[in-house]
Amino acid sequence: MNCRFVQSRLSAYVDCELTGHEQQAIRVHLEHCLECSQEYETLRKTKSLMRQLPLVQPTTSPEWLLARLHQQNGVMRRSARWSWNQVRWWQFAGGLALISAFIAWDLRSDPDRSEIQLTETPTAPAFVSQPIPNFEPAPSPALPQVSSSLYRSSLFPTSSSPYIPTNSYWIDESNSHIVSPLQPTRGFYTTFGLRPR
């Protein structure tokens, strides 16, 4: 056991943190080595000085700290009061019922009303109000009886599927009425400003 090995373990020796065998071997070495012995004494003295340090008197009290803690924790609790983790079941059920009622009301269509009365004359492009040449609108059996002065416009794309009603619109000459015979004019789509394609 050389001096370098011993000196690297002197603090652990001071703290009695070595194994019994190592403690014994270093003790024997210190009895015969002046340099290691002096090193050991200074480290032991350093630890002794640290342990003699007086306990610092706090400038605050635990009551003050606890008051601060409860205050800060209260602020955190208030800010987290409406988090999703704290939503009660009846709050969730109430919200669900409200949404369901709104959808039920919205999907209820009014069959008597098939036209949207525009308060102002629409500013449609010029070609929309022009009759399409060489085109004879074939009356569909599903279409309601409308004025013969209406012309069919292909402003919106049509679907070729026979199961999906054509999305065609009838626009009269004065552009004051838009008639969509196959689509409900009131309901989910119109409420949300959407038109199905």
């Binding site: 603090s11 652990a12 703290d15 943190e17 200074t42 480290l43 003295k45």
Partner: peptide, 29 residues
């Protein structure tokens, strides 16, 4: 931890020894 304590304690000893060498004189150890 053993290494940190040993190196830290040695540094601290050198600092104290620099300003209070009398504390580490032979008779005061």
């Amino acid at each position: 931890v053993r290494s940190r304590i040993h190196r830290g304690r040695k540094q601290l000893r050198n600092l104290i020894m620099k300003h209070h060498p009398n504390l580490f004189e032979r008779g005061d150890l």
